[in-house]
């Protein structure tokens, strides 16, 4: 059974999206990659649950979708 939440779960979706793109705005591609890596690691630890993480990875890897 799926555990990953794929319905809207944000308290403020627009604010998050703006903060995410703002954080990257001034960065080179290399630094953006670094920021993304840090963000993924921090969020992954916060989620913790292996099944949720693997489901998210699985969807993320479906690049053609």
């Amino acid at each position: 059974m799926s555990k990953l939440i794929t319905e809207n779960h944000f308290s403020d979706a627009d604010a998050f999206y703006a903060a995410l793109t703002d954080a990257h705005r001034e960065l080179s591609t290399v630094d953006s990659e670094r920021l993304n890596a840090r963000l993924i690691l921090l969020l992954a630890n916060h989620i913790g649950d292996k099944q949720v993480l693997l489901e998210a990875l699985d969807i993320a890897a479906q690049l053609e979708q």
Binding site: E33, R34, A37, R38, I40, L41, L42, N45
Partner: peptide
């Protein structure tokens, strides 16, 4: 390169945040 980015950022985070030490 991306594996290296994850590795290096894990190490940088590990200095300040205990969770990253487990990685």
């Amino acid at each position: 390169d991306i594996s290296r980015a994850f590795r290096d950022e894990t190490l940088r985070l590990a200095k300040h945040y205990p969770f990253a030490r487990s990685l």
